[in-house]
């Protein structure tokens, strides 16, 4: 794999994570438990879609095949997507959505922090902008996980169930493959092992305050960021997201 291909793949991973999660979060619009949460969820989705535009803009430039950010979002099929399996998981109840958000935000925060020091200035600049937003996302999702974990008996039960359900998707974030290695060697991306140590420390604190128990098994599902095997959920999301572009090819909106 050339560095060029690896860089393109890596940028797709960053952009696909924010696109797919942003889309999922946007599904809540108008249906949240309280008005403040509706606003916060829309705000999070908006940040993530904005980050997608930046990552895909750069990915298109790096690829050099004249694909726009919209082409990358709207005209690729499931096997071309490079997002983590975690972010394509369905929303479930509000607790599941916020648990997914917290598990991702804690990773996203550490990753972006490192990417602000990337040897590629374009990546460092996008990471710096995104980090400001993600710092807020993490504050909010971790506080909500704590509040609901340490809330009523029912909210605690639901949050534990959400954690148990989503835990097998955590490992993929930290399992390095050839793309991660190439990016680490190019001094763009961090070493995922050290990232995991910081992630675990933060997450342990959050879960302990939330009175939630981390599952014993560290089994990790994989296949998202490599694109080898996504879950069944992603295809349904794409049929919705890409429908207009597919049904009316070449139209501008």
């Amino acid at each position: 794999m050339t560095d060029h291909t690896a860089l393109f793949e890596y940028l797709l991973r960053l952009g696909d994570n924010t696109l797919v999660l942003g889309h999922r979060v946007s599904e809540w619009c108008g249906h949240a438990p309280v008005l403040e949460e509706d606003i916060a969820l829309a705000n999070t989705a908006l940040d993530l879609i904005g980050q997608t535009q930046m990552w895909f803009g750069l990915a298109g430039e790096v690829e050099g095949a004249e694909r726009s950010a919209d082409d990358l979002a709207m005209l690729r099929d499931v096997w071309d997507f490079r997002n983590l399996l975690l972010v394509e998981q369905p929303n479930g109840d509000f607790g599941q959505t916020l648990m997914r958000q917290c598990l991702f935000d804690a990773f996203h925060f550490e990753l972006l922090t490192e990417l602000t020091r990337a040897s590629d200035d374009r990546i460092a600049a996008i990471a710096a902008k995104a980090l400001k937003e993600v710092t807020y996302h993490l504050d909010r999702s971790s506080e909500t996980v704590i509040g609901l974990g340490d809330g009523t008996e029912e909210s605690h039960r639901r949050m534990q169930a959400a954690l148990d359900l989503l835990w097998p998707y955590v490992g993929e974030m930290f399992t390095a493959d050839a793309v991660d290695d190439a990016m680490h060697t190019a001094r763009i991306a961090p070493d995922l092992t050290t990232l995991r140590a910081r992630y675990d420390e933060r997450l342990n604190n959050i879960l302990s305050e939330a009175t939630l128990r981390k599952p014993d098994s560290n089994f990790a599902q994989s296949g998202g960021k490599s694109g080898f095997r996504h879950t069944e959920h992603l295809g349904h999301m794409l049929t919705q997201m890409q429908w207009l572009q597919r049904a009316y090819p070449g139209a501008t909106w």
Binding site: L19, C29, G30, I39, A42, I49, D70, M241, W253
Partner: peptide, 29 residues
Amino acid sequence: QLPEGNWITRAPSLERKAILLAKVQDEAG
């Protein structure tokens, strides 16, 4: 929020999706 939220997940471009999200968020505000 509901009739417009109905199209957020089907917005035809990233920019349109972002604008619509911002608009629906304003309405909640």
